[in-house]
Write a protein that binds this DNA or RNA. Structure first.
Length: 521
RNA sequence: CGGGGCGUGGCUCAGCCUGGUAGAGCGCGAGCUUUGGGAGCUCGAUGUCGCGGGUUCAAAUCCCGCCGCCCCGACCA
């Protein structure tokens, strides 16, 4: 597509092979995924291969999440990939919600016929097995035998797993037929306790989004139409991508007693009475890697928050003679050792046969936050050349000035001692930048005219609007403007100027508070 | 499911209209010279041209059928 023009030209900038965002945002995203070596399309429709660099980011995210799950009292377990069809069918609403995207296993054997291997028709399963699109039903079937008394509650379990949803259209990380995620499934004695769990885990997600991923999020609950199939309440965090579209980054559901009833999970309470258990479930997926890319990256490649960068500092030796090579390499190793002692993830790039410039571009593309160059002059001066992947842009700043600000020659000791602080600064800067970007594309809107103008002319973003429409009205808005209610935000999530009651933007009916409208991924 | 595109060395693609037995750039390997923002030269290796059938003396190329993937839309985390 648009990157074909670059094909046979000499690379002019670091962005070679990456379509600029302004030209084609969707293509830019794909280019980043490929050029930063995060993932590949596989030969299976809709399924991706997560490459080591992409997987390393996921592993760091996993660690951050898992630590928080443990800290809030959860333990990990693992349940089967296959769900008997009858299990899924038990919770009607749930089944209906996922029916259209289920992969189904119907046979268990292959057979060679005329030299060709194929499905053995004689091996048909008595009951088809659904490849889990989510695990509520199989897990609750098990909970039935685990829960008898209030003493067994709360049951706080998380599972790290892959799930399959046969989506009609897929996009690397954002929506793949198979994806990796975590799903928490908890059982509680009371509604209040379960609802508290829902809020607790949403807070964990928001914490990871903002303080680890550096992606500011709006917290709220879904409208009836957008709720998880089978849930009574779905809470979510919504991030804004650089094109102004919203991305749902995590959900936490109060499932009421629906699943307990369909799986017949009762417990004896303190008063000696049988009661159905209250359930929650909550999850985030590899989609978060997509959110990371679309929030922070630029036309030169991936930009990663230091907390999630598999490599935080890359050090490149520069030399001409074998003597210089020996000396700079020794210094590079020494610096690496000292930085690692601070707990930093450091990579020494002493590959031969690649010029330093080639290495710079590669690591920029891959989003390494800081690069250190060590040449003969640095050895003489006892300095290190510290180059940041990004700095906060100033208005009207030239490309050269920006580049100059990224690069600093620092006394060796200062550079090394200050590295952890620099990581923290960059982590904060990234969040601040993402926040500013979101603010810039956020409007308080009171009329349909302004609404339409915002989503057409200005390219859209987050719109705070009053809403008192029906489910049908929501659909009408979606058809007309391609927007949806991303969430009904919690009171403290609404900008102060936008709080309080008003009139529905569509129907004019009284509205208690504003909702968040946006186009969404 | 509808619309579009693509399938040829590892990658991106040219060649196809007008059939004559496969090319370029990048990458890869060796050697020499290079190295503070993508190195240069020399030599070298690498192909069931998506699959099946047909037409023909001859098919990457023409015809028929099939398959797969990607992109755009309707559905979704």
């Amino acid at each position: 597509m648009s990157n074909q023009q670059n094909q046979k030209q000499q690379p002019a900038t670091a962005s070679d092979g990456i379509t600029p965002r302004a030209q084609d945002y969707g293509q830019w995203y794909l280019d980043i995924v490929k050029r930063a070596d995060l993932a590949d399309h596989s030969s299976v429709r809709g399924c991706m291969v997560i490459k080591p660099h992409g997987y390393a980011i996921w592993e760091k995210l996993q660690r951050e999440l898992d630590d928080r799950f443990k800290a809030t009292g959860h333990v990990n377990a693992y349940f089967p990939l296959f769900i008997p069809l009858s299990f899924l069918a038990k919770e009607e609403e749930h089944a209906a919600g996922f029916a259209k995207e289920c992969a189904v296993v119907t046979h268990y054997r292959l057979k060679a016929v005329d030299g060709k291997i194929g499905v053995d028709p004689a091996s048909e399963l008595e009951e088809p097995l659904v490849v889990r699109p989510t695990s509520e039903t199989i897990i609750w079937a098990q909970y039935k035998s685990w829960i008898q008394s209030y003493r067994d509650l709360p049951l706080l379990i998380n599972q790290w797993a892959n799930v399959v949803r046969w989506e009609m259209r897929t996009r690397l990380f954002l929506r793949t037929a198979e994806f990796l995620w975590q799903e928490g499934h908890t059982a509680h004695a009371t509604e209040a306790e379960a609802r508290e769990e829902v809020s607790r885990m949403l807070a964990v997600y928001a914490d990871v989004a903002e303080n680890v991923m550096a992606v500011p999020v709006v917290r709220g609950r879904k409208t009836e139409g957008e709720r998880f199939a089978g849930a009574i309440d779905t809470q979510c965090i919504e991030g804004m991508m650089q094109d102004g579209k919203a991305l749902q980054m995590g959900t936490s559901h109060y499932l009421g007693q629906n699943f307990a009833k369909s799986a017949d999970v009762k417990f004896l309470n303190k008063e000696g009475q049988l009661e159905y258990v209250h359930a929650t479930s909550w999850g985030v997926s590899t989609r978060l890697v997509g959110a990371l890319i679309m929030t922070h990256s630029d036309d030169n490649g991936l930009v990663l928050p230091p907390k999630l960068a598999p490599i935080q500092v890359v050090i490149v030796p520069i030399y001409k003679t074998p003597d210089e090579q020996a000396r700079t390499t020794a210094e590079v190793q020494a610096a690496a050792t000292e930085l690692r002692a601070q707990g930093l993830a450091v990579k020494v790039d002493d590959r031969e046969g690649l010029q330093p410039g080639a290495k710079y571009y590669e690591w920029e593309r891959k989003g390494v936050p800081v690069r250190i160059e060590v040449g003969p002059k640095d050895l003489e001066k006892g300095s290190l050349c510290v180059v940041r992947r990004f700095v906060l842009e100033k208005d009207g700043e030239s490309e050269q000035d920006l580049r100059k600000r990224k690069k600093q020659f620092l006394p060796r000791a200062e550079a090394i001692a200050g590295m952890t602080a620099l990581m923290e600064t960059m982590q904060k800067d990234l969040l601040a930048r993402a926040f500013a970007m979101r603010e810039k594309k956020t409007r308080i809107i009171d009329t349909l005219e302004d609404f339409e103008a915002f989503f057409k002319g200005e390219g859209g973003g987050f719109a705070w609007v009053h809403w008192a429409g029906t489910h049908e009205d929501e659909d009408a808005m979606a058809k007309r403007y391609e927007t949806s209610i991303r969430c009904i935000p919690f009171e403290d999530q609404i900008p102060e100027a936008a709080r309080g009651p008003g009139k529905c933007i569509l129907t004019g009916k009284p509205s208690a508070q504003r909702v968040l409208m946006a186009k969404a991924y």
